[in-house]
Write a protein that binds this DNA or RNA. Sequence first.
DNA 1: ATATTAGGTTTATATTTTAAACCTGTTTAT
DNA 2: ATAAACAGGTTTAAAATATAAACCTAATAT
Lengths: 96, 96
Amino acid sequence: MFKNLDPLLHSQLRLQIMSLLISVETAEFTYLLEETGATKGNISVQITKLKDAGYIKVKKKFRNNYPLTTCKITPKGIEAFEKYVAVISGYINKTP
Amino acid sequence: MFKNLDPLLHSQLRLQIMSLLISVETAEFTYLLEETGATKGNISVQITKLKDAGYIKVKKKFRNNYPLTTCKITPKGIEAFEKYVAVISGYINKTP
DNA sequence: ATATTAGGTTTATATTTTAAACCTGTTTAT
DNA sequence: ATAAACAGGTTTAAAATATAAACCTAATAT
């Protein structure tokens, strides 16, 4: 029987964001924008969801007078991501 | 930049079904029911979608007076599944 | 002064997922 | 022989998601 895929991570854009954050450790909004190619609105929504889940920490400040949002994955987020990887591996490595 | 995940396969239940079909080669409706733990309605809908996409072939006959639906993955389905695996690997193997 | 750009957020729409209700026929119990 | 329960599904309707369009605030450029 298959284990459930964390619905928060089983989303193309949120998975992309988490994938970026897990290797980069801290990323600005515009970096996520460039790397994912998604729209600002979409990214904004997904960041909020990941933050609400405690998977990432979001910091808002100003740089050169402009707003600046930076994201950092949390231990909980790392754990969730690793678990997701383990679970989905059970779906896609069925040809041993 | 991330490649897009085939939306037809980026669905927990459809991915489960395809994962089963790729190793089993032919499966009955009730087998999918047991292995996935999903409801009949949900499975019925997803089978139809996979069939409409040409990812699986569906055969309906009778066995012991009862209707019997069997599914078989197509070459196109195998290709799509393998591509999905390759693409999502780019999401989850970012720690090389 | 006005237009454009930076950096986002909110709102609305479109799509999906999911399960409840339903359907057709069969077997079992009464 | 009739009713109740079961096999094997399909249709539907509600709920949840994803996505982009529109919007906002303030800063810079013309």
